[in-house]
């Protein structure tokens, strides 16, 4: 946590439950984390760990069968207590989203220009020529060639990378304070990913927009994040500055994730190591470590007592009864 003043976003004890036909599902279990102004924080975890749900819950974007509790403070306001129309005024203007799949996330029957103009009109009352000028400017900003022509085109006429740039342009239209990017590069070709990350990094630096990056890809994290929050089965299990986390993971799960990154320099055979088992689906918050069943270090304590997020041996918060001791460089396998 950076010293001085209130952070831009402070999430406290966020809990999300879904009512489903197979009974209740606990998707997020008391998650707490902060994002400071102009900071890029990565929310990391396997699919189903609750990271996307967390992102959606910030501004009330979850479907009606979700119940959300806890506190989401944004610029001093508790968003959880704001009315639906107040949240709508924040979405797209102060907190903007970029989603994973640019093909399906853009409306196929509306032009790119129309979809950008919609945000400008909604939040800045811009329309007509000024809106068009601003849209051209935005497309240019995210590195789309021939922006004036692209405005009149439909999503299917753009390549995947260009579509995602258009999504980013749309999100940045009102220079939001926080950009939530949910797996922004996952659906794209590897060659295109780097370009998109570049755009995100440069623009957030230029406009001073903080970024909450949701991803399962630690390569992306290493590339652009300042800080990392690791989630597992609905809980935040570790939080650290990016270098710190990569060098001194405290939670066995984080360590597993890091080991799963294909890194020929680290593993001679170059194979991807998987963490055995799968993310559990929970109905309620159990009095245990949710990772215990997949953890080689788990003992009886782990199965009956819930660990708290407390500073571990490496100095940063870890939710583990038996956190890993920091390894001295060169000692790792």
């Amino acid at each position: 946590m950076r010293p001085g003043g209130e952070p831009l976003l402070a999430v406290r004890d966020l809990t999300v439950r879904f009512r489903t036909e197979d009974g209740p599902v606990l998707a997020v279990d008391g998650a707490s984390f902060e994002v400071a102004g102009q900071e890029t924080v990565a929310l990391v975890g396997e699919s189903g760990c609750g990271k996307s749900v967390t992102a959606m819950a910030l501004t009330g974007l979850l479907p009606p069968n979700a119940t959300v509790s806890g506190e989401v403070r944004f610029g001093g306001d508790n968003l959880q207590q704001r009315s639906r129309s107040a949240l709508r005024a924040i979405r797209g203007r102060e907190i903007a989203y970029v989603f994973q799949e640019p093909m399906t996330s853009l409306n196929p029957v509306l032009t790119i220009g129309r979809q950008i103009a919609e945000v400008l009109h909604r939040h800045q009352r811009l329309r007509g020529a000024p809106a068009r000028r601003r849209a051209v400017e935005l497309l240019d900003l995210v590195g789309i060639p021939l922006p004036a022509r692209r405005l009149r085109e439909y999503p299917h006429q753009l390549s995947g990378g260009m579509r995602q740039r258009a999504m980013i342009a749309m999100a940045l239209a009102c220079t939001p304070k926080l950009l939530v990017a949910d797996e922004p590069t996952t659906a794209l070709d590897v060659t295109v990913q780097a370009g998109i990350l570049d755009v995100l990094r440069t623009l957030s630096a230029e406009t001073g927009t903080a970024v909450l990056l949701i991803t399962h890809d630690l390569g992306v994290v290493a590339d652009i994040a300042d800080r990392v929050v690791v989630m597992y089965a609905g809980r935040v299990i570790e939080e650290a500055d990016v270098d710190d986390l990569f060098a001194r993971p405290g939670h066995p799960y984080t360590r597993g994730l890091l080991d799963a990154v294909p890194n020929p320099a680290r593993r001679s055979d170059g194979s991807l190591r998987e963490i055995p088992g799968r993310v559990p689906v929970l109905a309620s918050s159990p009095d245990a470590c949710t990772f215990a069943d997949r953890c080689s270090r788990a003992d009886s304590t782990c199965r009956v007592h819930r660990p708290e997020l407390v500073p571990g041996p490496a100095g940063h918060p870890v939710r583990c009864w038996h956190p890993l001791a920091p390894v001295v460089a060169g000692e790792r396998r």
Partner: peptide, 29 residues
């Protein structure tokens, strides 16, 4: 339930705008 409706809501559009200019427009096809 399409992704672009989620995008429209994330842009801060009102319920009526989301339904009429995004969802209905596609349904009309």
């Amino acid at each position: 339930s399409a992704d672009y409706v989620r995008t429209a809501r994330a842009k801060g559009l009102s319920g009526a705008q989301v339904v009429l200019s995004h969802a209905l427009r596609n349904s009309l096809i």
